[in-house]
Design a protein around this nucleic acid. Structure first.
Lengths: 293, 293
DNA sequence: GTCTATATATCGATAGAC
DNA sequence: GTCTATCGATATATAGAC
């Protein structure tokens, strides 16, 4: 009985949060929608943040339950792999249209620093990524292995963009047709990736484990140094006086020695970057570096 | 002198909003960052919402100014069309990394219903879409005409997804390299679209009309009325008391007469929609209507 | 015009009666 | 467990001295 009431509050909260957003939805609103008093909600949930987190989790569990069921029915029917992919995309789209607040990334969310919520969020995002990875791997086979995370990225991006249009009801297509269109575009990208064989941009560690665990200090340092190495190579290729170029490389080298240390001197790091920043061609890369620090 | 102080406040506000988000950034924070008292800010801006709107606008003007300058320098250098595209994407990426709060779509924003802000937002989104359309048309030529909005959608989606990774500090590529990667993927999609010649999903009116293009005012109204007609048919099919149904239809009729006018009464339109919104089955459709207005 | 001090409102959370 | 009533904190916005 108590569990039933809990579930009812969560179901109501999902709808209210979905329609008004986190900040605009007050506990008063949710209580009224439940036909209860605000104080009663707090007997079941310790805080608004907890309630949102649980609503968020419950909403995702619904999606994955549906996905598993779809998988079972399709295994029975022995559909073509591309048709299976299309069906799964359609499922994801239907879900995303109904609960898009919970699916897309949060930006302006007051509780994005809440420990428990972040945990739930990362968990769900990792599960979603893994599911999408499996869908694509199943559809395209092991030849996609090397580019799987780039393919997932392209797929996710394209899907999200079209869903935005669908959400604005500016599309006259059904989700089934739209899913087929997206699969066809994805085919082109995957074929091209495998044929032209460029260097992948995303690798396992980048795309995936970041959502399970925050990047550890060591791999973070490694990414920083890789970027700096790119900047140094870029300086080498610049068309300018050898002397100025030498100075830039010298400062870049100093910056490198700082970043290689366990705890770099913050002031010196900023000083070196400020100097490199005076070279207009380097500004974007330096800003990127700053962003990572 | 007064204009200078105003500009200083806006510049400061851009940084504070960018770093803390809208809700978490208080007027106190902005005032302190300006070295002024909170009350003084209100001599220049009537509200926090106004200030945010102006900061948002100023930030985008910066982007478009840079884009125009890039266009001029590149016209002088006579670069290859693909290289021009790559440069523009790189510019957009650099900007997006620095001000991504202002570039990506807002979801959880307390002022997303603010009239003036929505106006500014639509305006800037329309300008951005037009710019991206022009970039792609210039790069791929008139053979892309039929698929231009689908190409823009794929481009935007892929760009956003990779920028998310870049924002999470998990990429060691420079933006220049990333831009080149995206252009290569876009090439594959565009080539495939033109070769296989499927039916386009997005057409001019879909992709563009609701982002404030005065030329499309008429077709915008038409789509609105189409949606309303669908809602009226939906009400007819509802399983409920005839009397309530009649009332809903009556209000829907009133809404229709408003929307048929050249400049509908904003308040009345909202009042009618608010009433229809009380009927749970109509909520999704009413949300669509609100989106389109 | 700029500051200090304050009014006003909202909302999350809690206490206590039943 | 549910309700009513209220606290406490925060933040927008304003009033009034200088």
């Amino acid at each position: 009985m108590e569990q039933l009431k809990r579930a009812k509050i969560i179901d109501t909260a999902i709808v209210v949060f979905r329609d008004k957003g986190y900040a605009a939805a007050s506990m008063q609103d949710i209580a009224e929608a439940c036909g209860m008093a605000k104080g009663s909600i707090y007997k079941h949930f310790n805080s608004k943040e907890d309630l949102f987190t649980e609503a968020f989790t419950a909403c995702h569990q619904l999606l994955f339950a549906q996905a598993e069921e779809l998988d079972r029915t399709m295994s029975a029917n022995k559909l073509h792999s591309k048709e299976r992919l299309r069906s799964k995309i359609e499922l994801l789209m239907d879900y995303a249209i109904e609960y898009h607040l919970f699916l897309f990334d949060f930006k302006e969310l007051p509780i994005k620093d809440n420990e428990r919520f972040r945990e739930a969020w990362k968990n769900k995002k990792a599960t979603l990524l893994a599911w999408q990875r499996d869908c694509l791997m199943e559809a395209y086979g092991p030849s996609l292995q090397r580019y799987i995370w780039d393919a997932v990225a392209v797929f996710r991006g394209v899907l999200t963009e079209y869903l935005t249009h669908a959400n604005q009801r500016t599309l006259s297509l059904s989700m089934a047709e739209l899913a087929a269109f997206i699969v066809a575009r994805l085919d082109a990208v995957v074929t091209d990736l495998i044929e032209t064989a460029p260097e992948p941009v995303l690798v396992e560690a980048n795309a995936y484990f970041h959502h399970l665990n925050p990047m550890d200090e060591q791999s973070r340092q490694q990414v920083l140094l890789q970027l700096l190495a790119g900047i140094q190579a870029f300086i080498q290729g610049l068309d300018m006086a050898e002397r100025s170029k030498g100075e830039l490389l010298e400062v870049a080298g100093l910056l490198q020695t700082q970043l290689e240390q366990e705890s770099p001197n913050s002031l010196l790091t900023r000083v070196y970057m400020a100097y490199l920043d005076t070279q207009p061609e380097l500004r974007p890369s330096i800003r990127q570096l700053k962003h990572m620090l």
